[in-house]
């Protein structure tokens, strides 16, 4: 398992409608953490979201790593007590190995993200 690294990006909290209509840069990964919250990595500029009260904050609060699917699924089968989505790509979040993990599942790789203060624990539990 690779070492987890901080993922630099932007945390945006805005009205769900503003997030629904926002167009993220092509090379960016936008993870919809909640109806009114998104984490976009790499970082983007503020004016993408149409909400004057939006919170747009640079954020490096997640640590993560891309994992090949076989390893990822083997780990998830024993550490994740909920059913993964079947479609790809897909975002999913919930307890994995007892930690609050965000997953971005693609056909040929899986991104694991965890709040940075739990990075050491996730590394140990994935080892």
């Amino acid at each position: 398992m690779p070492e987890l690294k901080l993922f630099h990006g932007t945390r945006i909290v805005a009205t769900p409608a503003a997030l629904d209509t926002a167009v993220w840069p092509q090379d960016a990964l936008a993870l919809r953490l909640a109806p009114d919250e998104v984490f976009v990595t790499p970082a983007i500029t503020a004016d993408i979201v149409d909400d004057q009260h939006a919170i747009v904050a640079p954020d490096a609060g997640f640590a993560g790593a891309w994992i090949v699917p076989d390893e990822a699924l083997e780990f998830l089968q024993r550490s994740c007590e909920w059913e993964l989505p079947l479609e790809r790509p897909a975002f999913a979040q919930g307890a994995v190995a007892g930690l609050p993990v965000k997953l971005w599942l693609e056909d040929d790789r899986v991104l694991f993200l965890v709040p940075a203060p739990y990075a050491t624990d996730l590394e140990e539990r994935m080892a």
Partner: peptide, 11 residues
């Protein structure tokens, strides 16, 4: 409603 069914221990 945001994440799907999860064990009560997550809440």
């Amino acid at each position: 409603p945001n994440c799907g069914a999860r064990a009560i221990e997550e809440f």
